[in-house]
Computed example of a mutant assay.
Amino acid sequence: MLDDYDALLLDLDGTVYRGGEAVPGAAEAVASAREQGVAVRFVTNNASRAPQQVAEHLSQLGFGAAVREVSTSAQAAAAVLATRVPAGSSVLVLGTEALADEVRSVGLVPVRTAEGAVAVVQGLSQDLGWRHLAEACVAIRAGAQWVACNVDATLPTERGQLPGNGALVAALRTATGVEPVVAGKPARPLMDQAVASTDATRPLVVGDRLDTDIAGARAAGLDSLLVLTGVSTPVELLAAQEELRPTHVSADLSCVLRPAAESAVGPRPQWTVLVEDGVLSAAAAGAGDSLDLLRALCAAWWAAGGGTPELRAEDGAAKAALIDLGLANS
């Protein structure tokens, strides 16, 4: 796969690590990419930490990341703000000091109250509370522009799925009736920033979420790889709308060390997959694994129009594979 692409645009949470734990095989895959001259960018919707902090965390987990390899939604949000409000404007920051620093770096003034704020920027902070949201509500209702770093509803951690920035954005959306401008995935600003920093002509977007990573890749016209180490599941993948469908699917990032054809969504000789009268059926035609079945199921079902399928296993091997994928009950 590393022969086919000249850059890897890697999501962080759920793709290369989960909280304080590296995803198995991810560090080795990143090291191999660098050895082969493939550019690496860690592209994260998480706006709570500065690029230096992200690089340090990655290095502690064995990735040896440089600051220039990190692209955050905080950087993208600050860049969006710089094009929408005059230099020197006061911007109410809902987020960490790392986000405030990015606002400051583009010539704007970060503040923490609504008075005088012409814009609001919102990023993930574990310390964000009602009083902070109330200040933002006042500013937005008074006409301040609102930029959200991302709208991820959840954040994958070693403890499971926890509330993401999108959950708090939803609270403000409900309170104000206003939709924010979004800087992070699946919107274009963050992805465009990451691609531009690599000078790549054929980058591959890698992530664990259909609604952000894969949708962001599709919006930017880029190939994508969904890894099943984070949020999105085979059930969601099979039912995905066209704008959420990846080019490749794999258990984890280690697939980049193997031929691209192995992980590409498409038919597999080991599995016979048919769509008849709205029923998606599978039968073994050889010794195939469950992920190959998933790739074949997606190809057939998406070609037939997609939606939520009715699945049928024609033999024991297919039944076992569907159970392994979470697509059937035992």
Score class of each variant (00 low, 15 high):
Thr233Asn: 05
Ser281Lys: 12
Thr198Pro: 08
Val182Glu: 07
Val103Cys: 09
Asp13Ile: 04
Val256Trp: 09
Asp289Ala: 13
Val273Ile: 08
Gln52Glu: 15
Glu97Ile: 07
Asn150His: 09
Ala29Trp: 00
Ala283Arg: 15
Gly177Met: 13
Ala29His: 08
Arg245Ser: 02
Leu94Ile: 04
Leu225Tyr: 08
Pro309Cys: 02
Ala287Thr: 15
Leu92Arg: 02
Ala328Met: 15
Thr15Lys: 03
Val227Thr: 07
Val151Met: 06
Val265Glu: 13
Glu69Val: 09
Val256Thr: 11
Leu238Lys: 02
Ala26Lys: 00
Pro189Cys: 01
Glu276Lys: 14
Ala26His: 04
Leu128Phe: 06
Phe63Lys: 04
Pro24Asp: 06
Glu35Ile: 06
Ala299Ser: 13
Arg268Trp: 11
Arg202Gln: 14
Gly37Cys: 04
Gly184Trp: 12
Gly14Cys: 00
Leu190Val: 01
Leu204Lys: 04
Ala313Trp: 00
Ser281Phe: 12
Gly184Leu: 12
Ala100Val: 10
Val16Tyr: 00
Ser59Ala: 11
Ala170Gln: 10
Leu12Gln: 12
Ala136Leu: 02
Leu222Trp: 04
Ala144Asp: 08
Ala119Asn: 09
Val169Asn: 02
Asp199Ser: 11
Gly278Ala: 11
Asp277Ala: 15
Leu253Asn: 07
Arg141Ile: 08
Val178Cys: 09
Val151Pro: 00
Ala50Pro: 05
Ala27Leu: 03
Ala22Phe: 01
Ser281Ala: 15
Arg209Tyr: 07
Gly216Pro: 06
Arg268Lys: 10
Asp213Lys: 08
Ala260Leu: 11
Asp277His: 14
Leu274Ala: 15
